[in-house]
């Protein structure tokens, strides 16, 4: 009986989802809001990558909310896993090959992460991706070396400073312009590194914040005794 009800429900849901998908006009030109964004992002924000322009400039307040959610998640995980005695990671050392090559490749990964978030307005990527890449590089050192440690105090200072930078840029827009996160800097030439006003500054702040948060999260996760 339950199976019959489940199959009936599946048929109904499937019918409506196929109906909805068939009504979307795939393969036609862009229209509506999408057309407006694609045509006027370079004029209005100075960023070449229109996804970045939407995420940071048009919807900048949402991005502040997302950063806050990530911060809350990291804090909650740290609070759950809090343990006074659990100071050591229970790792064995990796083999010599893994240790040597991760020592070589770790600065390159950090540099790549910095490249991704600095060039957020020119190439695909941005603050969140760059921060995740940097955290992955630090984790490579965590799983290779038993004695590699990060400075927790420095991590929280970096995180707070980056968050404060974001909010300060927003309030500067409120004071010197018309609204929160209003662009107050000159646009420059589209396509160059120093262009697009406040977008690169915000993405650098987001990159530092996300990198510090994810590193602290992974450190907490690896350090607890089970």
């Amino acid at each position: 009986m339950r199976k019959v009800i489940a199959i009936l429900l599946l048929i109904i849901i499937g019918y409506y989802s196929i109906d909805t998908i068939l009504k979307i006009p795939f393969g036609e030109g862009v229209k509506g809001v999408g057309k407006h964004y694609l045509e006027s992002t370079i004029k209005e924000t100075g960023a070449v990558n229109s996804v970045t322009a939407i995420v940071v400039s048009y919807r900048g307040f949402d991005t502040l909310g997302e950063v806050t959610v990530l911060f809350l998640a990291a804090t909650g995980l740290g609070a759950i896993l809090y343990d006074k005695k659990g100071k050591k990671r229970s790792l064995q050392n990796a083999s010599l090959i893994v240790k040597t090559s991760s020592k070589i490749i770790y600065p390159l990964i950090a540099l790549l992460g910095a490249y991704v978030f600095v060039h957020g307005h020119l190439t695909p990527g941005g603050g969140f991706q760059g921060g995740a890449i940097i955290a992955t590089g630090v984790l490579l050192m965590f799983i290779s070396y038993r004695s590699f440690e990060t400075n927790h105090k420095a991590l929280s200072i970096i995180e707070s400073l980056a968050g404060m930078t974001f909010v300060t840029i927003g309030f500067a827009g409120l004071i010197y312009g018309t609204s929160f996160l209003q662009n107050i800097l000159p646009f420059g030439i589209p396509g160059e590194l120093f262009s697009a006003g406040i977008i690169p500054l915000i993405y650098v702040a987001v990159g530092f914040k996300v990198g510090a948060e994810l590193t602290a999260l992974l450190d907490n996760l690896l350090k607890t005794i089970k």
Partner: peptide, 15 residues
């Protein structure tokens, strides 16, 4: 600019 995705793939996939 699509090459960047491949670069990140090649670097991170082994971790």
């Amino acid at each position: 600019i699509y090459i960047d995705v491949s670069l990140i793939y090649g670097v991170l996939s082994f971790v």
